[in-house]
């Protein structure tokens, strides 16, 4: 069953310097349980596409459906959790209360809030940090808390916009492993924006390679890697072959200019 379906999607921003073609003729189908990475240089529209799926931007042409609804309807039905580039935790709320924020807004009962906060903290391995304030946590832990916040309610889609872009590589490797584990445990459909080739190949079942001006899809790679992925899978020939194909796709996008 397809969860996200884009057909001939176009988005043009009107700016003072004239129109900017952020997305051009994007066709993409994402199945339930897929882990889809969007990779490409900045300005290729990968974040814009994710924001369109979230109903935060509105396409100027084509059709886009999320869970069989329009993106706005899906947003109102709280169909997805969104993780931004920065953790964006409220400094005046403890980690636990930050994670409870969407639950408060959606009207969950106090006891259910407490129970869910505990569960997702456990899921992102932050048990015991519930009463801490954000500034008392490292950047990686803050980003984990923001993932927990997106998981706290029952959205079966998780949209992540370069969530680990600002973190160092060691922390990033660990969080990549955790995200994979999380995906395995929850069966969610994940859309993941990145500009790291190893990250994209390591995480995804499907890699969408994009190129800029106008933002478009140049290649869609179905990963042949197994679902169980230890970190050292990145030294396997299969991994390197996929990474190679991604790199070729990125280069081809650049040659067009």
């Amino acid at each position: 069953m397809s969860v996200i379906e884009a057909k001939g999607l176009n988005l043009t921003f009107q700016t003072n310097d004239g129109p900017v073609h952020a997305l051009k003729d994007v066709n993409l189908t994402i199945e339930k349980g897929d882990f889809v990475s969007f990779i490409g240089p900045s300005g290729c529209g990968k974040t814009t596409f994710l924001r369109c799926v979230a109903g935060l931007e509105h396409p100027t042409g084509g059709t886009l459906s999320v869970n069989g609804m329009t993106p706005d309807e899906a947003r109102k039905a709280r169909a997805y959790g969104y993780v931004f580039q920065a953790a964006g935790l409220y400094p005046w709320r403890t980690i636990g209360r930050n994670i409870a924020l969407p639950l408060e807004i959606m009207g969950y009962s106090k006891s259910e809030q407490a129970e869910r906060v505990k569960r997702v903290l456990d899921l992102v391995e932050l048990t015991g940090f519930e009463k801490k304030f954000p500034w008392q946590l490292s950047g990686g832990m803050q980003q984990r808390a923001s993932i927990a916040r997106a998981l706290a309610f029952d959205a079966d889609i998780l949209l992540m916009d370069e969530p680990f872009g600002a973190l160092d590589e060691i922390v990033r490797d660990r969080l990549n492993e955790e995200v994979l584990k999380l995906w395995n445990n929850t069966g969610k459909t994940i859309g993941f924006v990145t500009h790291s080739i190893p990250e994209a190949v390591y995480l995804s079942t499907k890699i969408v390679v994009m190129s800029p001006r106008p933002g478009r899809i140049t290649d869609v790679i179905e990963s042949t890697l197994p679902r169980e992925r230890p970190l050292d899978i990145r030294d396997s020939a299969e991994f390197i072959a996929i990474a190679h194909r991604v790199r070729d796709g990125l280069r081809a996008g650049h040659m067009d200019e």
């Binding site: 979230a54 109903g55 935060l56 947003r75 109102k76 959790g81 931004f84 964006g88 409220y90 807004i105």
Partner: peptide
């Protein structure tokens, strides 16, 4: 980003005021 986050929760205007 913080305003967008509230939009993803479909929060009302008054929730945006009191909570953010």
């Amino acid at each position: 980003m913080q305003l967008d986050l509230l939009r993803t929760y479909n929060a009302s205007k008054s929730q945006g005021f009191w909570k953010l």
